[in-house]
Measured scan of single mutants.
Amino acid sequence: HEITLHINGRRVKLRFRDEKAAEILKEAAKKGLDEEELKKLAEELWR
């Protein structure tokens, strides 16, 4: 699955395995994680 989040006016595509991962990524984006941090988090969730 993929999700596209808008971060600092940019579109960031993240891959994720399940809905739980999608929710975690959305929450992290709301908390203000930047693009690099979100990509790292997405990679961690993928494993």
Rank of each mutant, 00 (worst) to 15 (best):
A22L: 15
A29E: 04
E2P: 03
L45Q: 02
K26E: 07
E37Y: 09
L45F: 03
L45S: 03
L38G: 00
I7G: 01
I7A: 05
H6V: 15
E2V: 14
E35M: 10
L25G: 02
L5R: 00
E19G: 08
L38N: 00
E35W: 10
I24K: 10
R17K: 12
L5V: 09
K26V: 13
E35H: 08
E2G: 04
L5C: 05
W46R: 02
L45N: 01
L45P: 01
R11C: 15
E43T: 07
I24S: 06
K40F: 12
K39V: 13
N8A: 06
L38Q: 01
K20Q: 11
R15E: 03
A28Y: 08
L33S: 09
E19Q: 15
R47Q: 14
E2H: 14
E44G: 06
E37K: 11
E43C: 04
R17M: 14
W46N: 03
E44T: 09
L25M: 04
I24T: 12
E23G: 12
E36T: 13
R15W: 11
A21G: 11
I3Q: 02
L14W: 02
K26M: 14
K39Y: 13
F16L: 07
R10K: 15
E19H: 12
R11P: 15
A22Q: 08
R15F: 10
L25S: 00
K31A: 13
E36F: 13
E36P: 10
K20D: 05
K26H: 07
I3R: 01
A29F: 13
A29T: 05
I3V: 07
F16K: 02
A42M: 05
L5E: 00
N8V: 03
R11E: 14
L45M: 09
E37W: 07
G9A: 03
G9Q: 03
L33H: 08
G9N: 05
D18F: 06
E27G: 08
K39N: 07
I24C: 08
K20E: 08
K40S: 12
E36D: 11
W46S: 02
G9H: 04
N8Q: 08
H1E: 08
K26S: 07
A42K: 01
A29H: 13
R10V: 13
L25P: 00
A21E: 04
A21S: 15
K31C: 06
D18W: 04
K39M: 12
I3H: 02
R11Q: 15
G9Y: 00
E43D: 12
